[in-house]
Amino acid sequence: MKTRLAFHLSIREDDYRAAASRMRDVLVVEPGDVPDALVTSAPRVPGTPSLLVGGDPCEAANLFPAFPWRFSPQVRVIRSSLDAGQIGKPGLLRMHVWSPASQPPGDEARLAALDLALWLTGECADAVHASHNSHSSLIHLGFPGGAMAMLDFTNTLPEGEGYLSLSLIGSRGSAYADDHRDRNLIFNGGAPAASAPRSDSAFIVPMLGDFITAVREGRSALSAQEEYRNAAELLRQITP
């Protein structure tokens, strides 16, 4: 039995539809075709389980906030290693999130990074410090169990690709996901360019898969909403 999944997105809907069409247990339908579930960028009619991509989820039992960064290929591997006990107890999450001025790492990116920090450490922060200047912001978190997070954002890169680095230092080992490592050299005169293979849509299928599973299992969205609110509250605290 396929889940009838509809989309109503303000951006990247084609990417989402293409990703869903690759899923064996999903049938992509239009919002008016009585879907079993909806992926949307705006809260829609109550009653249909929905995945809210961007935006603040209201307290409705079937409105799931989307956490795209949790499903990036890098984070999935790290989470898997963490869950398997390979890395041990998280001690430090370090992230650099850089973008060109035309694509500033706004609140959405900060919220996603804060959510990752809470999600990977499994705790709510009990210490928060933020430092800002005109081009950069730095968020420093402490957690009751001793873990810490240092999240750095900037929007001064020249026009072009952004940069993401994520490392998780645990008590038994560490994980390093860094665009620096993943870039290949392209020689075209002068100093070579360094470019990474594209993987910016790789989060969609696993994120939709997780949502479909939640719908099929009749899960409540309340715990996911609480996780969203925890990150949002941190963002509110550090916003100058």
């Binding site: 430090l92 420093h140 750095d152």
Partner: peptide, 25 residues
């Protein structure tokens, strides 16, 4: 293991993450 936010002259923001994280890491 330690993390330090650095607020510097000229409005420069910095950070240091430092640790003796074990040979397996």
């Amino acid at each position: 293991l330690a993390t330090v936010t650095l607020e510097m002259d000229g409005g420069i923001v910095g950070s240091l993450c430092i640790g003796r994280i074990g040979a397996a890491a």
